[in-house]
Design a protein around this nucleic acid. Structure first.
Lengths: 334, 334
DNA sequence: TCCTTTTTAGAAAACCTTTTCAAGGGGATT
DNA sequence: AATCCCCTTGAAAAGGTTTTCTAAAAAGGA
């Protein structure tokens, strides 16, 4: 049996209130008794029961994190950042991987509700009304990470996807490329799809390269789909000399396809990715990519959620973090 | 305020006992009342308070997972498997990433203790006496995943590292390679280091290739270190035509190094990896590797822990799962 | 020395649920 | 019609902690 506060009280020959006070406000107990109590705690390896405390405080000191795909390295970085922030702020972290499954996500929210997490970070997914209603119904505060919504007043934190995409495409244009395609996210089930598309379009129009506007194929988050999409893209537009991929994994899929077709990267085609995963500098060739501050996004999301929990609101509702272009080996002047 | 069982009882005009019975044994309550209760539950979005239940059951229905490096895709697979098993078995999952830091790991155990997790899966790390003592002191049952110990009677599950390494090296030998090197894990802080080394040695000795026995360099879990190790290995033994890498990430680091030196893989040097990460088939060239049943390992670990929790013991103390060789593009006949 | 004020410690209530125990009501059997 | 049994339900206790309230003891002032 785990020792309880009663056992400690008995051993130290004081009341349980005194033990509780020693644990929480040591100064309010006179030295002699305090020592007796602390010795007993030591000897019994006593640890207050989190259930009993939770019952009283109505807090679990636990945060929930909802991610779409744990096998995507992007989220590994998010987790590291968020976990470090949680340690600093005194929270535990509960991670749930939804595999992009609506039912599953909803049931995880129930789970979080039952476990009484204090708040949730909702990462990289569209906040559908069902999700919103459930979250609000459960009265669980939450923030959006690498996502946002204008339908509700929900705190969010992300990079400026439109501007980042613009920078990537602008970079290709400045290298002298005139025939530029894109491998994008499907618009209907991804939050980053539309803004990155917009950035692509804006860069093209600004530079008078409107003829490229339709040269896009869409893929579904994974390498294999990007490989397929690249196949379709280059079959339809063999003239392309550069491709903007809205994810590093897409860039890898694209390069893999080009390699199988004996098209040299960056010799014949330049490829720019997005995210700057740890893998990007391991790939051959090393990827030129838009770096997101992944770790910091996770860290900041936890801080922001904490702010929301403590003060009931948040200083900056829709927060943006900076991206930057990292030039490596998958791009070259035309 | 979150609704409590009292609110439900009031709305349904029954006693709280009846509500509790509807939640736990629906058949024991007469249809008419059951319906009233369920409607009220629905309307209030009532969810039983996990603290109160935990207090009664002395169980949290939560498992803990301790992993050394969340940015290693190996653990992403483990997590997926374990999470699926947890859903099936009715547990929540709490994941902690130790970053291979002793202090941090110890403090996570405290955390698990305080949160009263029912059991812990301890993945891919050496079970040092400090860890063992702490775990036992906290009275938390645990199982070892991709790890084992002969010092204590602790349930464990893993692949047969020695046999797997043997198979990998044997494969290279059968391709006709006579000059074979290895990039291994440091022996002192890794659990898989020694057995994979043993497998390498056994294959060599069995085939009369003892001259290779010293052709080993060690690296520290990450790509970059493997790159360095490959540099040292090939500087010392330029005659090598094949390398056995004890992790896919090492294989990628090695191939990356060889690429930078303009040594063609698999044309001039064959490389075999270990793990079969999702990345392995995305890499260029696609990796020949020893596949571990990663998802299944995670799944099975949760099942095993559950078995331990429910029955107090475990059918197979030290369990092994099958590996298999997957031949892709990074190896070729000599 | 006595009275007042402050410090210290204990008793008991509250948090929310499950479960045991007891009781009431209805159906079946004699 | 009376007895018994079973089904259904409610009341109350238990689980471990924090906190409020009260009482007792100590300290300080006159």
């Amino acid at each position: 049996m785990k020792p309880t506060i009663r056992d400690v009280a008995k051993m130290a020959e004081v009341s349980i209130s005194t033990v509780s006070r020693v644990m929480n406000y040591p100064d309010s107990v006179v030295e002699s008794k305090r020592k007796r109590v602390m010795d007993a705690v030591q000897k019994l390896q006593y640890q207050p029961n989190a259930f009993a405390r939770g019952l009283i405080f109505k807090k679990s000191f636990t945060l929930g994190l909802l991610i779409p795909d744990i096998e995507n390295l992007y989220f590994a970085g998010i987790i590291r950042g968020m976990q470090d922030a949680c340690i600093k702020l005194g929270y535990s972290l509960m991670i749930c991987n939804t595999d992009r499954d609506k039912e599953r996500l909803l049931s995880y929210i129930d789970n979080f509700h039952e476990k009484q997490v204090d708040g949730i970070v909702f990462a990289s997914d569209v906040l559908y009304p069902e999700y919103y209603d459930k979250l609000v119904g459960c009265r669980i505060p939450f923030v959006l990470l690498s996502s946002h919504t204008y339908d509700y007043e929900i705190p969010s934190i992300e990079v400026d996807d439109e501007a980042a995409a613009y920078d990537a495409v602008k970079f290709l244009i400045e290298l002298g490329h005139k025939e530029i395609g894109m491998i994008g996210f499907n618009h209907d089930n991804s939050i980053a799809g539309p803004p990155r598309y917009e950035g692509f379009i804006r860069a093209l129009t600004e530079c008078g390269l409107e003829q490229n506007i339709g040269k896009i194929r869409y893929a579904n988050h994974r390498f294999e789909h990007a490989y397929e999409a690249a196949h379709e893209l280059f079959t339809a537009y063999p003239e392309l000399t550069a491709v903007f991929c809205v994810a590093d994994e897409f860039a890898m899929g694209t390069i893999s396809y080009l390699k199988d077709r004996n098209i040299h990267v960056p010799g014949q085609v330049s490829v720019v990715g997005f995210d700057n995963l740890r893998m990007s500098s391991m790939f051959i060739p090393k990827l030129t990519t838009i770096a997101q501050p992944i770790y910091e996004l996770g860290y900041r999301a936890a801080e922001k959620l904490h702010e929301l929990l403590v003060t009931g609101s948040v200083a900056i509702l829709r927060e943006r973090m900076d991206h930057r272009l990292i030039v490596r080996e998958s791009s070259r002047e035309k």
